[in-house]
Every structure is written in structure tokens, then in C-alpha cells.
Design a protein around this nucleic acid. Structure first.
Lengths: 203, 203
DNA sequence: TGTTATGTACACCGCCCTGTGTGCTTACGG
DNA sequence: CCGTAAGCACACAGGGCGGTGTACATAACA
């Protein structure tokens, strides 16, 4: 990526600086955090002059908010939209995250910025609610008795796994997946599933 | 508080500056975060000269680490040590946190500092493991089939509730408590409990 | 009483941060 | 080919940060 594709729309004549900036943000904000990544370093990594960066974004705050908006299609939605899996399998697949992912950036942004009014914090809040809603949708599709509750529970498990992985420095997603399996099997009436019917002590 | 009690041990002749510094840390680090709280502001709040602060702590890093060490006895241990509750009730009581608590400071520190080698991060890691161990002990006492697993699961739920409460800006501990109830009832064999024996679909 | 540990007041340093001002170069589109 | 918008290089402002040096005040204890 970042191979100076000048942008899909045809506008912007030069070499797409904005894309490079956002691409570098993805990497640096994840690796180092938001507060510990200066604009100088970020512009250097993006091979963009600082002046140009501030012509694309009014300030770091706006850049951070825009950086957060670049995760939507990729992370979770892809899993929940897969049609080759049963709804129950999709819910469980949400916990099969590759061990490379360091920490949910939304949690990181909310903690680092520490201001609920910050646009990035607001977006993080919206996103988290949207994830819970999507999980609830899939839960409903899977025949859960109380889809909203199950969606909220699974969202909490995802957040817990992300946070605990960060703090303890060990992958906590398998534990979360085990809990999710119990919750899902408990929430789906016995008649709902077709092939997915193990006993609840899946361990 | 902060009424210049000169310290219980009798040592330290002046007015207890160290206590005031740590007391102010508790408040400011929680309210504003670590990175967003400068030493100037902290010293002003503690009514302590900056020079004195740096005579008590070699640097901000050491102060942060010491600040984290001031939670141990109060937060969770108190609940798990209560003898007037059954082990199962104690496990559930861990999720009855007052809505005042903003965020688990250990998660906040680990995210803000962003360096696993930082002494405060290491202490946060140790503490989180200790909490899981204590939960496992209580789980064993409650007769759980796999106490370590249940302890780790409950710890993950606590972290998830804390993180999600912060991001979504709404209390997530009731949801976590509901999950905990399911897990506990699933993990404890039917013959173990005496009075604590409801069916698993507690909802 | 005097010594010493403790705390204070205040100025100061160097660093890095976000953010700009100015003038120059490049690439695209007509 | 030229005009213009996009990008670049560089220096700098202004401020907050962590941290220190110096000289002075006070409290505890001998």
C-alpha cells in the first residue's frame, strides 16, 4: 500500500499525501499510542511535510478522529457478514482474532484521550454500540431468546479480552471465546440450532 | 483528608508531604489520566513544592508506580475476604461496584504508559494476575470444577466491564454480573452448594 | 540550644509538543 | 504551454513538560 496512488476520485493532483498520513497513523498510533506519537514523527513516517499534514487536517484531534473511522469495514463486520457460516459460528468467529492485533484502538483512544467530548471518543462510543447492535442482530438470526442482551454480553467479552490482553500481556481471547460459547448455548433455545448442539461444558 | 498528620510511624519530622502527593495522585490521575496530569499541577494540588516531590520520588515514573500500589487493600480484597457471605456470594459481590469508580486504574495505566517494561505496567500485570488468583481461590472454595478457569473468566469479565464502562460511558457491570452468575452456576457441580442452588437460566 | 532532616519558594534548563509563515517545486489539466 | 492547486523544506513561535539549583524556613530531636 501507500504506493502513491493519486486517489480514486481523480481529484488531488499531487501524490496522495492524505492517504499516506492516515496509513502512517494506523501503524504508529497502534504501535506507540496516540499521545506518544508526535506529528513530526508521523509526518516523517508518512513522507509528508508537516505543512501538508496541517492542510489536510485542522489539527491532531481531527486526524485522530479520522484515523478511528478507518477500521469500520475491516475488523468485525467482515466476520459477521460471512455467509458460509451459521449465525452461531459467526458469533464465535468474532473471537478468533489473529494474535497480531495489539489492542482495540477504540478502547485505546478513549483511555488515552480521556475526554468523552473528544470527537474520537464520541466515535469510539458510537462504534462500540454499533458492534453490540450487530452482534445482537446475528444473535437474533441465531435464534437467541434475548438477542440484545446476548449482543451486549458478547461485546463486553470482546472488550474484556482486548483490555486484559493488553494489561496482562497474554492472549485472553480464547478465554473470552469459551465464555461466549457458554453464553450462546445458554441463550439459544434447544430447538433453534441444527448442527451446533454440543453440551455446555465445552471447556 | 490531607490534614497534615505527620505519619503513623513517627519517622519523617516535617508535615507529611509524601502522603499529600500520593493522595493528590489518586485524585488527579483518575480524573485526568496520567499523561495529562503534569507535575506542576499535581504539586499544586498536593500543596507541595515541586522540589519536595522530587526528593520523595526520583521521577514521575516512580510516583506512578507507587500510586498504583495504593489500591491493593481497598478495592477487591475487601469483598473477597468477607466472611458473612458464601463463596459464591463473594464472587458475585465483586461485580457490585459503586457507580462512582470511573475506571480500573491498572488498565488506564497500562494503556496510557504504553510500555510493558514500565514499573507501573509490570505492577498492573502482577496485580491483575493476583486478582485472578484470588478469584480462583474463592472459586475453589465455592467448589468450582475448574477454579483457575473460573477465576480467569471472572477476571476477564471485570476488566471487560471496566473498559466498556469507560468507552461506552455507561455502567457495564450489571451485564458482567449477569454473565458471572451464569458462569458460576455452570462451573459449580450440582452437589457443591448448600443454599446457592438456582437453575442456570438466571437471566 | 543547635544540628539535621524535611519542606518551601522561585527561577531556570532543555526537550518535545502542536501548530504557522514563507517561499519554492512539482504535477496535472486545460 | 501555462496556470494553478497540491505538496515540500525549513525555520520558528509558544507552551507544557519533566527535572534541577539555589537559598531559605521550619520542625523534631539531641
Amino acid at each position: 500500500m501507500t504506493e502513491l496512488e493519486k486517489g480514486p476520485t481523480g481529484r488531488r493532483r499531487g501524490r496522495g499525501a492524505r492517504e499516506r498520513i492516515l496509513s502512517a497513523s494506523q501503524q504508529l498510533f497502534r504501535e506507540q499510542g496516540i499521545n506518544r506519537t508526535g506529528m513530526d514523527q508521523l509526518c516523517a513516517a508518512a513522507e509528508v511535510s508537516k505543512r501538508t499534514a496541517y492542510q489536510h487536517f485542522t489539527g491532531k484531534d481531527e486526524l485522530v478522529a479520522e484515523y478511528l473511522r478507518r477500521f469500520d469495514p475491516s475488523v468485525l463486520s467482515g466476520v459477521l457478514d460471512r455467509t458460509d457460516l451459521t449465525p452461531r459460528e459467526r458469533l464465535l468467529a468474532a473471537f478468533d482474532i489473529p494474535p497480531t492485533t495489539p489492542l482495540c484502538p477504540y478502547i485505546g483512544a478513549a483511555v488515552e484521550l480521556h475526554d468523552p467530548q473528544h470527537p474520537a471518543s464520541q466515535y469510539a462510543r458510537d462504534y462500540k454500540k454499533a458492534v453490540a447492535a450487530r452482534l445482537a442482530d446475528t444473535a437474533r438470526e441465531a435464534g437467541a431468546a434475548d438477542p440484545e442482551q446476548l449482543g451486549e454480553q458478547l461485546a463486553l467479552l470482546l472488550d474484556g479480552a482486548a483490555a486484559r490482553t493488553r494489561v496482562v500481556n497474554a492472549d485472553a481471547f480464547p478465554t473470552a471465546a469459551a465464555i461466549a460459547a457458554v453464553l450462546i448455548d445458554n441463550a439459544i433455545p434447544a430447538t433453534a440450532g441444527d448442527d451446533q448442539r454440543q453440551e455446555k461444558a465445552a471447556n
